[in-house]
Design a binder for these strands. Structure first.
Lengths: 228, 228, 228, 228
DNA sequence: TATGAATGAGTATTCATTCAT
DNA sequence: GATGAATGAATACTCATTCAT
């Protein structure tokens, strides 16, 4: 049963891993700090959700329960720290991804294909970790805010690049076009990968076809003339 | 904390309300059976998730806990029955919706607009109940299967109608086109409404714009020529 | 260490056993309800304070932990119920005691002796249970209020009887005289018995002498003329 | 909940501050030693009991936890050292007090009034620190012994002075008279000040009246003839 | 059938004490 | 000596499920 209970932590704004915890900077402490985050992440991926006990984290991470509370005020805070760490990793990968695409793109269609494919594969590679994060984002605003930030940053990056093809857009409000195009791509991929949906569902349909069609949709949408 | 615990029930296939329970057919029993389901649904909507106790259900539904276990093998089964009942309701509404659209549509663009709008509003009207369902679908295959069924049925219905405009499609594999177009619409709307996402997220962006752009995307996608 | 933490219960007013709990009226439930109160009282007397675990109560009372929570909202409430039950017992005994003294008293000195002796023995007989109660009264207002009530009632009863000898009082404000005389008797006896003091302390000094001197003090005080 | 746990320390006899600890005699060490005691005392007064953590002591006293354990074998020992220090302070004040009274007293009644008043005010001024001490004295014999010592010393001092008026005593056993008179005064004041009773209770009744009546009681008791 | 009292396994959190540096 | 990070035992409370009536 999902024991949801609105998270009690006061801090409902965006957190970095450091902010959600007392992050030691070096040595032995740092090592055990890493072990707890890693253990928690591992358990999270394994179970597909937040439903692990701190005793499990202690055992897997070879850390004492007390140590966990030395770094985090609560289990919630530990979870948030794990999320922040994962999202930071994704963010860095997104940056790298956008840089690569930057160099390749030729036509609007090419760009769409390249972008969708790269983004799809990136999300896919992270899907096991993302699932539990999205799961919690459902009721924890501080997490969904983090996810939103990440998406918005990517939207802006994609926008910058898509706008190179702005002359080919069919309608005037370019920002809206790009934003909605990105949204559809992101939402469809996320859902398809079972992020916020069951793992089994993820393999429904044909991954390659979906990617191809999303690219086509994207380009067609951007080019589409407004309702006359 | 999300006390998820992989559902223990053996039955992992698709269930109807009747299959998940020992559904009495008439009289006094039937009435208390209804009260259980209704109470559980009410608590589910209220809390936005599965996090209610059977004691609460007993109190709200004016049923004894024992009675619940007389009908359901576990709390999980009760929840699944509630889900099934809600999805059946949605299913019926979808049928009515498709019938209405059938009569109105003129051009492919008109149809897309009409369909997206009607479906969007339908999903929106059910979003408070759908959220907890989708929430659980994340880790309960028997629920996500139900949702998938519902979507597939709608896909087929939409397909039948969209195929009227098949002559205007830009690519040959019509089934795939329609299926993917529907998928993008559904996924985007679902995500937008915060089904399986946080309620706050639901109000991001502009609902009317999203609907309009989804319709445009749909038509443009269907018309789009294949990669030459 | 004394983990004191102001009691969280909302109800800071005087409680009866029934008010602090969901007291079943009969049968099996009633029996296990009694067993938990008795077990808790036993553990309280044994340890001299509130420091017993609910697991111990469950074991000693042959009750499940869940059952305890079926009757009480918290461990605090269980403790308060025990206190209320004990204080009710004492109250009844006080009534009986006053009635007996009523019949015996001859002179003011006789009355003082009789009263001090009877009250002293009553307090002494309850001292093992009273100690933990007084201990907690230190920081739990709802308990100290109960104790105060009990004392005030006794003060009034004593007052009524002492006033028979009012003509012999040395000063005019009879209510104050009686009230303070009683206070000194009560405080001295309580302290002497180690109620709110260590058990070992209780055997300091000579019990019979103290009782005798308190009686003398009481009569002398009541007869004493004001500062001229 | 009062986590009392009979004190584990082997030493159940009377301790001075030095005996309960490894008290450094000078310099840097001495300073941090003082800081620990002062911090603990501050926290004790603040919370009204022993319920502070060593981590708090370390923070407030700007001492490391390790340092504390370098001086004390346990938290219990630290607490006892604080108590001893406070009681020593009180003791010194009592000496000063008795000296002053010595010079003033005229009649037995005068002496009683002066003594009760001075002692009452002394206890009152120490009541915030005394409360937690008395609280613990309830179950820690080594503390209650200390308190007893202090009281006995005062009894002897008072005795010496009261015996000046011995010719006016109504009964022969002067030591007993003085001892019991003092006891009643002490117990009543202590109780009244809420030492070992709830703070709220402390403001019951009228302080000035109580002092006045205690003085009257004292003189009347000493003068009272024995039961003929 | 129906009831709802009883059960007890399961878990986050605290804090005195230890010990590697 | 001094530090403070690490330890882990201990405990109140919840709630799905059972079962005597």
């Amino acid at each position: 049963m999902s024991r949801v209970s609105t998270p009690k932590s006061k801090n409902d704004s965006i957190l970095t891993t450091a902010e959600a915890s007392r992050e030691p900077q070096q040595g032995r402490s740092r090592a055990s700090y890493e072990r707890m985050l890693t253990a928690a992440e591992k358990l999270m991926v394994k179970g597909g959700n937040d439903d692990f006990t701190l005793t499990e984290v202690a055992k897997v991470g070879k850390v004492s329960i007390g140590s966990i509370y030395l770094r985090f005020d609560s289990k919630d805070d530990l979870i948030r720290a794990v999320h922040a760490r994962v999202l930071a990793r994704i963010d860095a990968d997104q940056d790298r991804m956008m840089q690569k695409i930057d160099e390749q793109a030729a036509t609007l269609e090419d760009f769409a294909r390249a972008f969708v494919d790269a983004y799809a594969e990136l999300l896919k590679s992270y899907s096991p970790v993302l699932r539990p994060i999205m799961f919690r984002a459902i009721y924890d605003e501080s997490i969904s805010a983090l996810g939103r930030d990440s998406a918005e940053k990517l939207t802006r990056q994609a926008e910058t690049q898509m706008l190179r093809y702005a002359s080919e857009f069919g309608r005037p409000d370019h920002a809206r076009l790009v934003s909605n195009a990105f949204r559809m791509i992101y939402y469809t991929l996320a859902r398809f990968l079972g992020l916020g949906s069951s793992p089994e569902a993820a393999h429904q349909g044909n991954w390659e076809e979906i990617k191809e069609d999303l690219a086509i949709m994207c380009a067609a949408f951007l080019r589409a003339p407004g309702p006359s």
